[in-house]
């Protein structure tokens, strides 16, 4: 079951969970509502046909233009987009899930946006979500051990955000 038929089935089982789609893209993707993410993932892993038993990659894309002049011309809304690449070992098929989040929770700078963790569905998500938290600043609620993974624990800021500024000093080490 591929493409539109698969999507119809998903919408029948979990109505309202899919908020957007692009089946013509290079890697066809569907957009899922953040609060329905775990339900969708659980269904994809356990009941769908084919079953997506492997999570390959979790990453975040920061859609934000820090330059005021260029920002006036961009066509997209500022947001933080999570991208989940799933893989089915049996059917050798892939699926891309996207979740759109506000860049800051309640538009308060410094308050990280929240999304439910899928570490309980695929164990791969454990480290991958830690990396997204570390690099892009997303809080995964329900994650068993959410702390920085690549940067030191006392690092300030989220380096893969477009408005990130390199700290001038880190324990006496000069930055920039």
């Amino acid at each position: 079951m591929r493409g539109p038929a698969f999507l119809e089935k998903l919408e029948a089982v979990l109505p309202g969970a899919v908020t957007g789609r692009n089946l013509e893209a290079l890697d066809p993707w569907i957009e899922v509502a953040p609060d329905r993410l775990v339900d969708v993932c659980r269904w994809l892993k356990e009941s769908s046909d084919p079953r997506f038993d492997a999570l390959e990659c979790v990453t975040a894309v920061d859609w934000f233009e820090p330059d005021q002049k260029k920002a006036a011309k961009v066509t997209w809304q500022p947001r933080l987009e999570l991208v989940y690449h799933l893989w089915s070992t049996a059917a050798r098929a892939s699926l891309v899930l996207k979740v759109s989040l506000p860049r800051w929770k309640d538009d308060t700078p410094g308050e990280l946006p929240e999304v439910p963790s899928v570490a309980g569905v695929w164990r791969t998500a454990d480290w991958h979500e830690r990396e997204v938290y570390d690099m892009s600043g997303v809080t995964f609620t329900g994650h068993p051990d959410l702390r920085r993974i690549l940067c030191p624990e006392d690092w300030v800021g989220y380096p893969l955000r477009k408005d990130y500024e390199m700290p001038l000093d880190y324990h006496g080490i000069r930055g920039r």
Partner: peptide, 12 residues
Amino acid sequence: GVLSPAMAIDYG
């Protein structure tokens, strides 16, 4: 260090 197929897939 025996790694079962299911665990290997689950951990990516």
